[in-house]
């Protein structure tokens, strides 16, 4: 496997221009959508089959009573342990040599299990093609030496693309700088390969708790439940089977006490 590629989104640099969201739409030929009223400048509320990059506009109350803008360009995390990939029954969802997670549109059969298995609610179902879609890290671009369209378009380098190990080191330094500047809650989200989901290949620098950005504090791999629930189902089967056995066993006397 080649060196893992990653995107580092430093939300402290985001100015909410949405160049990334537009670049993503243009390059990936994602169609127009009916806008939604979200109460802020944000549109849409969440990822859709036509929105793979989404700038979140979050208003956080300050102690002074004012609101502070928290801007965050959100995207598929390309998890090292990906719930969508494990859920896919056709093998349509696969990991590339760069560590990213893609959905092969020719193989996807539209079962939508991946949609319900993404801990971040990223994967979306496209009603017109009948397949699941999401960010590909611009698979075509990165295989031709170009960065993803969003990273390329970002005017403030809030979105950086490169080798994961390089970016993590850079991100850690940036957190220290921000903390020294007084941003007490500055933290990395998904940078730690030993942390949740084996680390995210699109990781973030946040200025507040993950929950503020509508991110789960401790996302878990859905498939962790398969073994436990299967064992409990076997237990259930044993009890039900035993009940039926007791009811049906032939006592040889033809006694009917039902």
């Amino acid at each position: 496997m080649a060196r893992t590629l990653a995107m580092f989104t430093d939300t402290s640099l985001c100015i909410g221009c949405r160049a990334c969201q537009v670049a993503c739409k243009q390059w990936n030929e994602l169609g127009m959508e009916v806008p939604e009223w979200t109460g802020t400048y944000q549109n849409h509320e969440h990822f859709t089959d036509k929105t793979f990059r989404l700038v979140r506009f979050i208003e956080e109350p300050k102690p002074t009573g004012d609101l502070a803008w928290l801007l965050m360009s959100d995207v598929c995390k390309h998890c090292a342990q990906a719930g969508c990939l494990d859920a896919c029954p056709t093998g349509a969802i696969y990991r590339t040599e760069y560590g990213t997670v893609n959905i092969s549109q020719d193989v996807c059969n539209g079962c939508r299990y991946c949609v319900s298995s993404c801990p971040f609610g990223v994967v979306a179902f496209n009603e017109s093609t009948g397949t699941a879609t999401k960010c590909t890290f611009c698979n075509d671009r990165i295989h031709n030496g170009l960065g993803p369209a969003c990273a390329k378009a970002c005017p403030t380098e809030s979105i950086q693309f490169g080798f994961r190990d390089d970016l993590v080191a850079k991100a850690q330094k940036r957190v220290e700088t921000l903390k020294a500047m007084g941003f007490k809650d500055a933290q990395l989200y998904g940078a730690d390969a030993k942390g949740f989901l084996g680390g995210l290949n699109a990781f973030f620098l946040l200025l507040s708790r993950p929950g503020t950005y509508h991110l789960p504090e401790n996302p878990k791999l859905p498939q962790r439940n398969v073994v436990v629930d299967s064992l409990l189902s076997i237990g259930s089967a044993l009890i039900v089977g035993l009940g039926a056995l007791l009811a049906f066993r032939d006592r040889g006397k033809g006694r009917d006490d039902a």
Binding site: S116, S117, N225, A237
Partner: peptide, 28 residues
Amino acid sequence: ASYTGVLLSSSAQPFWSEARLMGALFLA
């Protein structure tokens, strides 16, 4: 009778997954 419950248990939805008993319930 039970795998459909396990299938729901191994999704990201808390209501479907957190009890880890959906398979046992569906089997019953």
